[in-house]
Amino acid sequence: MRLRIRHETRYRLAEPARRAVQYLRLTPRQDRCQRVLSWSVSGPPSLVPWTDGFGNRAHVASEVEAHDALTILVEGEIETNDTWGILPLDDGLPPPMFLRPTPLTLADDAIRDLAKPFAASCVGTGTVPTLHQMTGAIAERVVYATGSTDVTSTAAEALASGKGVCQDHAHLFIACCRVLGLPARYVSGYLHSERSEMASHAWAEAFVEGLGWVSFDPANCQSATDAYVRLAVGFDYAGAAPVVGLRSGGKGEDLSVDLSVEQVQSQSQSQQ
């Protein structure tokens, strides 16, 4: 599928900030399920591309002058393939690393209870079907509700409250996988979907011996398709967040986001 993406983030401040630094993970990863045709990131006065330890293509943005507004504009086209949610192991990240619990994905008793029934069948060829079942169970226990949690909410908190967004679903899935002894990681990206609130999306990937990384999207109860664009992977949201930043001073943030992920016809594609 050929997708055209335009993603504009605007910050306005009632009281100016002295300076700001951000990490932007807003450039699609290079892998076999997606090919970048054109891509640009612009806006901040200084923008330097770098690659983080997880192989995510990031930028470090900085503004050292006093400012009361900042815009980040991301535009580009990308060609995706449907790989039935399976990614071959080609990203150089050792899977066992993703067994490590993190503050956001730490399992409590409730999470262990949630995962336990799936332990027996989660072996060999039964692994993928079992994880799909687990995805269903997670979606049942935590209903999708915009605004019910924030970026600091943990998997355990989401399960306890029974409400969450895609980020919480992904965290919970990861926590359950780690309980089952399966490496699992967080993916942030774009989704071409009828539901516009999911255009900026998050899901998870579990490592299945013999197959590689297999994606699961508990918010939509499916594996990733060619409607998904992978931006960044990490242990959890904290490591894969599309934008993290800090500023000195400044008050009264007003944030607005325009994001469209549209399908375009791909017969006459021009290479650049």
Partner: peptide, 18 residues
Amino acid sequence: PADLVLTNEAFCPQMLGM
């Protein structure tokens, strides 16, 4: 053992490939 290293809290993935 790979696990001893890779799942170690002190192992810092941000250093990979550097």
